[in-house]
Simulated assay, not measured.
Amino acid sequence: LVRDLWPDGLGQVVGDDRQLEDLEPWQVFPHSMEDLFRWMYITRRSMVFDRTRPFEVLHAPMANSNTKYSVVMRMQGFVKKMNLSTYGNWNGLEKGAPGAIQMLILESGGHDEPFHAQIDALERVRSLVFRQLTGHDPADRLPRDKIYFQRRVFQKVSVCAICPSTLLSNRQASEEAEVAIDITDHRYIDAQEIAKHWVARPPLPIGAPLDTGVCKKLHHLVLSPGDFVDVAVSVDIAYFRNGARGTPRVQFSLEHVLLLASADDVQTVRTERTQVPHVTDDC
């Protein structure tokens, strides 16, 4: 497992001591494109509320099961830069709501082996998406010195008079959004003014695992550059039509952030590892 490649047990999540042999096949990311095509697939959403998001990425169906599971991957690294506030980079205007995002950038902290293994996995996912939707690999590649994740702040309110489930979904989204509201954010009032068209998504789960096996909820301001974190990400395909063909853009959307070691804790470990015992003539 990639988590075991990090030094000093950094990648080990408290309370999760599972080994490779303990995991189900769907929990282990494939090493080859051939296996990846058997492990996950792209399908059109049964109901589309955002024309730029017609596709979803699912695990291949398991035997004797019709349940669909979205693909979610776990990544680890050191926080380089972030904006995880409730409204992210939103400018407070309704026209800015579609592009408003929260974001998190991870770096290797000098540990390239586990970090590059994760980038290689994300590259394979991008290749699968492009091959299936365009017939060829993406023209660009991910940078090797950082991993960029994001999460859309708002979701569009859809009204469908002939679809009660849609109305229920919108009502639930509005109720969940109330939980996400941060009244200390100066954009709180602005968000209320556009709530008929755009609602803030439920808050991004941020926490720290405890010895008891549960996670302690954390405020996003607790996180700092240099922290070592474990994140869960899903595959978000933005698809833009250009005549008969479309152009996909693959993004990796944040689902949760777990703080495994603070920057201070990491620095303490590094200091202890580099200290040389003082030898005196009395020894």
Rank of each mutant, 00 (worst) to 15 (best):
D4R: 14
L5M: 12
W6H: 05
W6S: 05
P7I: 12
D8H: 14
D8L: 11
V14P: 08
G15F: 08
Q19M: 02
E21H: 12
W26M: 10
P30L: 02
S32Q: 06
R38C: 04
R44G: 02
R51Y: 02
R51L: 00
R53Q: 13
R53P: 00
R53N: 06
V57D: 05
L58Q: 12
P61Q: 12
M62H: 11
S65H: 07
V72C: 14
V79Y: 02
V79M: 04
K80M: 09
M82D: 03
N83G: 14
S85P: 01
W90Q: 03
K95G: 05
G99E: 03
A100G: 01
Q102A: 11
L106V: 02
E107V: 05
H111D: 07
H111P: 01
H116Y: 04
D120M: 02
L122N: 06
V125I: 13
S127A: 07
L128K: 00
R131L: 07
Q132E: 13
Q132V: 13
T134M: 09
D137Q: 09
D137A: 09
D137R: 10
A139R: 09
L142R: 14
R144S: 11
D145G: 09
K146L: 13
F149I: 11
Q150K: 15
V153E: 02
Q155K: 15
S158P: 09
S158I: 15
V159L: 08
C163T: 11
C163P: 02
P164F: 03
L167M: 14
N170R: 13
R171L: 13
Q172L: 15
A177T: 07
E178P: 13
V179D: 10
A180H: 11
T184M: 08
D185Q: 01
D185M: 00
Y188V: 05
I189M: 04
I189P: 00
Q192L: 14
I194Q: 05
A195W: 03
K196H: 08
P203R: 12
L204I: 09
P205T: 04
T212A: 12
V214R: 14
V214S: 14
C215H: 15
H220W: 14
P225F: 03
F228S: 13
D230L: 14
A232V: 03
Y239M: 12
N242A: 09
G246R: 03
T247Q: 13
F252C: 06
S253N: 09
L254K: 08
L254G: 07
H256P: 00
D265L: 02
T268F: 03
V269G: 00
T271A: 11
T271S: 10
T274G: 00
Q275V: 10
V276Q: 15
V276F: 10
V279N: 06
D282Q: 14
